[in-house]
Design a binder for these strands. Structure first.
Lengths: 235, 235
DNA sequence: CGGACCATTGATAATTGTCAAAATTCGTGG
DNA sequence: CCACGAATTTTGACAATTATCAATGGTCCG
């Protein structure tokens, strides 16, 4: 969204413009909110907060991406989310005194905007439509998690990998069906709860079958999307 | 919560009293909302709606329980939730024209309260604190799902079963650590994405080790909770 | 160019799924 | 309250899949 009316500080309020939860706001409200926002940035590998930390702000990703994960009993990272531009989290800290459920780590350089718990709470009371936007966004997130849980419940590992690749294609793919992978092979394996080696083997298999082409460690090209869809069993 | 002021129709507004999302309301609001509510009941095995159906109401469980599931490509039920008294769902239909993400089926006789999409939407605009309650509740649900995803990512099946039993104990257990199972063995297996037979074997093993005692198909007694906790690896 | 990190491959062991049959439980109706 | 048939669960044997360990091969970056 462009800034039509003398928005000198546009780079500072950019979070507000970008985020779906504020999409219904009028211009004056945008300024009001921008005043509440603090900005921070992190480098790749930096941890924004650890599981168990107290969170007292809602965090919105302005640019870049982060992963949110829990450590499983057997010491692996279980990735719950990859948050990118426009995503927000920490809303659970709103009313409850809960501590963070997961660790959040930057996957690349990220700029974030934070709004303190108190400010945000007041904001919601005065702008009921923001709440509705948030409910809508949380609903979407829940839907994605429901799909995730469904995928993880598929006993067939090949189908799960196909699902993951299609999900990535949608999120991170370009017009040539080249996916810039947000995480390593190990990260992908951890998202599905399988061994790193199994992921390797399965991807090699897909490459042999000309379904994908593994360009580099950080990107994959989808050659035969239909085959992947068929593998998931949903068609 | 008891009805103090001549609440003849208490049995009709009981949903409102029971549900956390309305907990912050004043008495007059309760009546206002009660007027918006419709009541329905279903018998065990009845389907409230199918995945893909259009939903135009928010549904609150008054008594009984339901399961919400998706059918996986290989034809199994993947149970996403067991909703019981006080739980609500369908809030995703609020703003978006989405169709149901899962099928909902009664596990026993259930009484539900429904509020139409429109009524609910207006309610939220006029009562910002209800929205905040909902955001809080959705946050809790998301937390549970995050834990679920984490559990499903554990490669060790024994640990996952232990997690499930502990979760059940918390939700459905009584003082004697007897759990009234909401679903069949097959249902339990489906929640974890494992074969029914594997679940059987693992439970037998737990029984041999005096960690649980399988009273009937519908209930299990936890004999050694600590052992289960240890099995999950979280201590 | 070198070193650290990440990914792949092979061989083997362990685990789980599948199919078939037997045993148990559940609910209904007499 | 008991008995019977249907449904669910358990068990066994075997096949298929995946994890693990170890070694090799690549890739990225200073």
């Amino acid at each position: 969204m462009e800034c039509s009316t003398g928005c000198i500080h546009c780079h500072h309020s950019s979070c507000v413009h970008k985020v779906p939860i504020f999409s219904s706001l009028e211009h004056k409200d945008v300024f009001e909110i921008a005043a509440l926002i603090e900005h921070k940035s992190y480098e790749k590998g930096d941890v924004l907060f650890f599981e168990g930390d107290k969170i007292n702000a809602v965090i919105i990703i302005n640019t870049g991406s982060v992963k949110a994960y829990k450590i499983t009993p057997d010491g692996r990272e279980q990735i719950l989310y990859v948050f990118t531009e426009g995503d927000f989290f920490g809303e659970q800290s709103l009313l409850t005194e809960q501590t963070a459920f997961f660790t959040v780590e930057a996957l690349e350089k990220v700029n974030i905007c934070t709004i303190s718990k108190e400010s945000f709470h007041n904001l919601l009371l005065s702008h009921p439509d923001i709440s509705i936007n948030i409910i809508t966004e949380l609903g979407k997130r829940i839907n994605r998690m429901e799909s995730n849980i469904q995928s993880m419940g598929i006993r067939n590992v090949d189908a799960r990998i196909a699902s993951l690749l299609l999900e990535y294609l949608e999120k991170y793919g370009d017009d040539n069906k080249v996916i810039r992978l947000p995480v390593s092979r190990e990260g992908m394996a951890n998202q599905l709860g399988i061994a790193r080696e199994t992921m390797s083997r399965k991807l090699s298999q897909l490459e042999n079958n000309r379904i994908i082409s593994s360009i580099t460690n950080k990107s994959i090209k989808i050659l035969d999307q239909d085959a992947l869809v068929e593998m998931t069993g949903n068609y």
